[in-house]
């Protein structure tokens, strides 16, 4: 009887371990990506990796047709304002990812045409307070830690690359003054 009890408990341990591993995998991978990105951010809160080639081995399946910019930030100390003032006539997008890797927000050149482009990223609790005083879109993040990935479509034309560089340099991820 005792042996059966231990056997059934072991099955339970197996199942729980299995479920926890599947649950934790994306979170551990995102934690690593966000931690590495945080260590390399500039004053503007961004990291601007070099154009993608075969030496880009940090994130699987990089697109060689895109130039990237990233921000990694925590919302524990208050909301974060994301702004992008650059003009880029080709495809670009800004995507936000939760700490479990879910893409919970995306915008781009088609639906963010007005200048200045500003978004206030906050948690659900922060969203209830009056943290923003300027007209901007408020985005509620499902997690405290957020990863932002900006994509800009480029090609081999040096003019296009220069335009994309200028555009991504205008990306800002900064803590709001109210926090």
């Amino acid at each position: 009887m005792n042996a059966w009890r231990h056997f059934l408990t072991a099955i339970g341990v197996l199942l729980v371990t299995h479920a926890l591993t599947v649950w934790a995998l994306p979170r551990v991978i995102m934690w690593r990506v966000m931690t590495v990105a945080s260590a390399e951010t500039s004053v503007a809160g961004t990291f601007l990796p070099p154009p993608t080639d075969h030496t880009a081995r940090r994130i699987v399946m990089p697109s060689p047709d895109l130039l990237y910019a990233t921000c990694s930030f925590s919302l524990r100390d208050g909301p974060v304002r994301v702004s992008f003032d650059g003009h880029y006539p080709r495809y670009w997008s800004i995507a936000l990812y939760a700490d479990n890797s879910d893409n919970f927000f995306v915008t781009g050149d088609r639906n963010a045409t007005d200048q200045p482009r500003q978004w206030l990223v906050s948690t659900a609790n922060q969203a209830a307070s009056a943290v923003d005083r300027v007209a901007e879109r408020r985005i509620t993040a499902p997690s405290d830690r957020v990863f932002l990935l900006m994509r800009l479509l480029v090609n081999d034309d040096p003019t296009v690359l220069a335009d994309a560089e200028r555009a991504r340099h205008s990306l800002r991820c900064t803590r709001t003054a109210e926090s």
């Binding site: 995998l25 991978i29 399946m61 990935l149």
Partner: peptide
Amino acid sequence: AIFALLAL
């Protein structure tokens, strides 16, 4: 997360 992290 393993094979196509940061997909849109």
